[in-house]
Amino acid sequence: MQSKELSIAGAWVFEPSRFDDDRGLFVAPYQEAAFTEAVGSPMRVAQSNHSVSRRGVIRGVHFADVPPGQAKYVYCPSGALLDVVVDLRVGSPTFGAHEAVVLDSTSYRAVYLSEGLGHAFCALADNTVASYLCSTAYAPAIERTVAAMDPALGLPWPAEITPILSERDAAAPSLAEAAEAGLLPRYAG
């Protein structure tokens, strides 16, 4: 498995080896030893999430209050999605910056984002599956969202896709509004 830290501290991309033969294929999208070597510590997994989205669905930018925060390891076992990591940590040298990675059922590439980073994705095909491991269980009282369509963030959503958002995500505050309201995590450096 190959790994590379992204330009935002606390975010990595992982690309597992793929083994194809006349029966089909085998791939291990998450490998604890490779993860620990890259990140420096193992990932505690408290919950596994699975979503299916039609083309154009944008989910996010989601994050959880820190502490405890919620780290995520995301991959796409079916279809294709544009996965976006956003640095929402006030005081971070890359505050407001983002990285986008295509995750699909060809490469089985995965993205890891640590606590305090925001996460969003756009389904590039119908019936796209996002599967992710989470370091903490879902806790509605500490779950937050920032507007994925905030022009100040300038997230690279494909121009040819008509965005489909949940009511919650469509009503999310901008990055500036979330910062002003004190909703964003602080950078621990």
Score class of each variant (00 low, 15 high):
Q2K: 14
S3C: 11
E5V: 06
E5Q: 15
S7A: 15
I8C: 05
I8Q: 00
A9D: 14
A9N: 13
A9Q: 15
A9R: 14
G10P: 07
G10S: 09
G10T: 06
V13G: 05
F14N: 08
D20Y: 05
D20F: 13
D20L: 15
D20I: 12
D20A: 15
D22I: 01
R23C: 15
F26A: 11
F26I: 08
F26H: 09
A28W: 08
A28K: 12
A28L: 07
P29L: 14
P29Q: 10
Y30G: 14
Q31F: 04
E32P: 04
A33K: 11
A34T: 05
A34G: 09
F35P: 01
E37I: 01
E37R: 13
A38H: 07
V39K: 03
V39H: 00
G40A: 10
S41W: 10
S41M: 11
P42K: 01
M43F: 03
R44I: 08
V45R: 04
Q47L: 03
S51L: 00
S51C: 01
S53T: 14
R55E: 07
R55P: 02
V57D: 04
V57E: 02
I58N: 12
I58Q: 12
R59K: 14
G60Q: 08
V61T: 01
H62M: 04
H62L: 07
D65Y: 09
P67G: 11
P67E: 00
P67D: 03
P68Q: 12
P68M: 03
G69K: 04
A71N: 03
A71G: 12
A71Y: 05
K72T: 00
K72N: 03
V74N: 05
Y75D: 05
C76N: 04
L81M: 15
D83S: 08
D83E: 15
V84C: 13
V85M: 09
V86F: 08
L88N: 10
R89M: 02
P93T: 12
F95L: 06
F95H: 11
G96V: 03
G96W: 14
A97D: 15
V101S: 11
V101M: 06
V101N: 08
V101D: 09
T106W: 11
S107K: 01
Y108D: 03
R109E: 10
V111W: 10
Y112V: 05
S114L: 05
E115F: 01
E115W: 00
G116H: 00
G116R: 02
L117W: 02
H119Q: 11
F121K: 07
F121Y: 15
A125G: 10
A125Q: 14
A125P: 02
A125M: 13
D126E: 09
T128Y: 07
A130E: 02
S131Q: 09
S131C: 08
S131W: 01
C134G: 13
C134M: 10
S135Q: 00
S135I: 01
T136M: 05
T136P: 04
A137H: 09
A139M: 04
A139L: 04
P140L: 08
P140W: 06
P140E: 01
E143C: 06
R144A: 08
R144K: 14
T145S: 12
A147V: 10
A148L: 06
M149Q: 11
M149F: 06
